[in-house]
Design a protein around this nucleic acid. Sequence first.
RNA 1: GCGCCUGUAGCUCAAUUGGAUAGAGCGUUGGCCUCCGAAGCCAAAGGUUGAGGGUUCGAUUCCCCCCGGGCGUACCA
Length: 545
Amino acid sequence: MKLYLSMLLTEALGRAGLGVPDTGIQFEKPKVAEHGDVATNIAMILAKPARKNPRELAGIICDALRPLLDAGKIAAVDVAGPGFINFRYAESYIYDMLEEIIRKGSAYGRSETHRGKKINVEWVSANPTGPLHAGHGRQVCLGASLCVVLEWSGWDVTREYYFNNAGNQMQNLAITVRARYLEQCGMTPDPEDLHYAGEYVSEIGREVFVEFGDGKKDADLDFFRSRGERWCFASITRTLAVLGVRHDVFFNEDSLYRDGKITDVLRLLKEQDLAYEQDGATWLRTTAFGADKDRVIVKSTGEPTYRLPDIAYHREKLLRGYDRVIDIFGADHIATIPDVLSGVKALGLPVDHVDVIIHQMVSFVNDGEAVRMSKRSGNVYYLDDLIADVGQDAVRYFFVMRGANAHLEFDVKLAQEQSENNPVYYLQYAHARIASILRFAESQGLETGTGAELSLLCHPAEHALIKALLGFPEIVALCASTYEMQHLCTYLNTLAAEFHRFYHECRVVTEDAALSRARLALSRATKQVLANGCTLLGIAAPEKM
RNA sequence: GCGCCUGUAGCUCAAUUGGAUAGAGCGUUGGCCUCCGAAGCCAAAGGUUGAGGGUUCGAUUCCCCCCGGGCGUACCA
């Protein structure tokens, strides 16, 4: 529709002796229904260069536009407010569109906008030094939903997890696992060795003991490292699977060492004088990229800091040739981004197509009290715990219902206690309710299939519901282009509300068979859109609850 | 100190990226089931969008300056 109006407006502007602004013609959906279904601010944009009153200009544009309009699509066009041009859909248009929704079914909302283009989304990427904690949930859910939305916009999506199975943190895990294993063998662990305090490390130690007895007393750290890594990997992927999240690629950090990529990058940086030795360490000349000071990339122990493998990893990823690359990070990792990107850029790779999504931290509140999160103390609220407390659907929904930039407060108690009033249940309830209506209709011998006379739907609540359904593809596109998933949540809840209103205003199954069939068709279409939305969010769309 | 994020109803957060009367949920108050799911609907109350300037037809949104909160500012990731 916007495309159609855009064409006509361009034509009309030409006839009125006006040009199209560089920004194109912008449309928006008026907040207030009386203002019509679509509006454009074109007259206000053009008013200044044309040195004319916006309202007057809008009138001129309208006059030029009216003869061009197809009455089957647009019923009315008028000037309002400071110079908006408002359009109102023709009834036949919304019936046609409803027909289309029904025809497209589970594909309604998909588009081919980015067909043939490849995108890589890297997210989660938590260190395999323990199970995922509740705070990881936000990134898990944001990324997972984003990937689906991108696919619905035609992108060929690669889901990637950068698996940090090398470096200092893994060394600490290995030491801790060994200490816990030796504890099983009857030795008292040195507190210095217990870098990770979580109970799970003891569990790993027990597993090793069960399998080998005390036969691994003299095994080297590599053994315990790989046992720890294997356990953590299994734990993380299991939790992800519970939430319906999967990755296509787990890129192992240690492969960068094995394949010599770390040394390659170090050499390349040194060749460009972007890395230098000092005080026994190797420094990255980040001041050359505008940073306040240079940073260490290889410690005096000879071990790289995270920056170096991060640069090497991004280089490998970019070399694979994606049209777009998305990195999702928590705000606590924000410091690495400028260094890594400028490092990669210095290696001759373009980074303009890399988008970094930063999400702010989550705080968990339980019964008015902050849930303390500390890996070292072992006092951790795990993502598994959160799922057990509120359910996977609530987890998936709550983490994406707010913008990534908002500091999210997750009140666990509230999510448990008030689950009846939860937005996610509100949404699912609408879906289950429609399913119930359809079952009832069938029990009454009503045919709920095709062939409904949609023009019988003339009640305001019916029109409002249809128009709400029409907005779905645009919302999907909006989420895909802004990377902001909360728009979908907001949309789905207003859609559910619109349905509930319709339900109260218009009885679906009545003696009037023709009207009943039309309303059943509308109900089915609503159910379909709700289900499609649930698919995008990764939550269930139940037939009963 | 510096950098990034943030401040909107009592609470948690929206606001289609600069649009028309700033909206939802929770909480509070009052209505609605002889009828397809009341996990629902309707209504009321609640706001100087942290404060002050600026940009323009128009600012919650952009710019400047204060004030408050979060995260960084490691030879941890």
